[in-house]
Design a protein around this nucleic acid. Sequence first.
DNA 1: ATGTATGAAATCGTATACGATCCAGTGTGA
DNA 2: TCACACTGGATCGTATACGATTTCATACAT
Lengths: 219, 219
Amino acid sequence: MNASKSEVAYQLLHTRITEGTFTPGYRLVLGTIAAELGCSVVPVREAIRRLEAEGLVSFERNVGATVAAADNALYLHTMQTLAIIEGAATALSAPFVDADQLAAARAINQAMTDLLTDFDPPRFTELNNEFHQVLYRNCPNPHILDLVQRGWNRLALMRSSSFTHIPGRARESVREHGQLLDLIEAQAPAAAIEQSARAHRTNTLNAYLAAANMPASPL
Amino acid sequence: MNASKSEVAYQLLHTRITEGTFTPGYRLVLGTIAAELGCSVVPVREAIRRLEAEGLVSFERNVGATVAAADNALYLHTMQTLAIIEGAATALSAPFVDADQLAAARAINQAMTDLLTDFDPPRFTELNNEFHQVLYRNCPNPHILDLVQRGWNRLALMRSSSFTHIPGRARESVREHGQLLDLIEAQAPAAAIEQSARAHRTNTLNAYLAAANMPASPL
DNA sequence: ATGTATGAAATCGTATACGATCCAGTGTGA
DNA sequence: TCACACTGGATCGTATACGATTTCATACAT
């Protein structure tokens, strides 16, 4: 038994939020959650404050906690941040990506390509996550790794909303994946890899912004 | 009265750590801090977990918390991360920097230049902080702003150690500040500003790494 | 009808208490 | 001497309890 109750509470709430059981706006009441977990409110409170620090939950003193709302601004800021961080993470990770990982990434991207003809958004999103995780997993900087994960969590918050799947973006996306893999395999300069990985995210963001008649991200 | 006790405890510990009263390795005992603050351990515990999430404190279950240790690896990772984040923050902020802010930044940099003849490391560090804060303060992305602040906090942790003030770096630094200001004033492309702001940090990092016979940062 | 006062219910914030866990120092046997 | 079990004290983890704060519905005055 290696998990404190606050850890258990944290994990539970975390998965419920990122998997969409608790949608944005859902009210997290200390007593209710504590009762469900069979523990007291103290560890639940701690778990909620951790989730707040990660941006998954918004918390107001003497009022309570709700799953963070997902609006256009949050999507913009999250994707912008993720583009920057993940670009750096991928570049820093690239020298340590071995042949097996490269092959795995290519296989995932092939699966995504196959999926284009019979499009399945949730599956596509899942494969996309796997693809990118393979590419940044070796990043030797733990801070950056942590921040990428945080960005993904924030992004998961918006999965249920209409923030994903701009028409035509999926096909474009797998092409960009291929280019990125080529750069990594050729051991291109870090700056080139960073630029490619960031642009991939930024393109997705800008496709969304264009559809919403908003100006493109400057970075 | 708008501050909860856990907030008070957080602020107190935060300033003590970043100002160097509690140096790395210092043991934070719940009961002791609670007694000093005249409150119970529950809010102190919450404060410490927040500090842990920010990386200022390392915490071990059933053992306790200590101010995070600062070693070469932490310095490298922190500066690398800060270079990336602050570069982006400065670039995103640049379009919103007005004439007053620009003038203030130039004044600070002039004060830093004057200080070169009669060097005073703590004062130089302080001015340097102010300078950069002016430049990234207008960043419209709250996530990035938050991450920059977090990076600075981590950096503050290492102020007392021998991590700063590589010979000759101060003079180089004020020159780079001037170049960065020129780019912002000329409303250069975001990418150019980002590149300049990042390089400024990376140069400092690499100067340290070179002095420690370590390879330069790849980004 | 609108705005304001009032009260009760819901919920949070933290003090206190106690069991659980870890650690350091001591003693015992090989 | 060394390895290991044991024990006492320090410290953490969380249950419980209760006061503090917010919220919302209701009643009242304008």
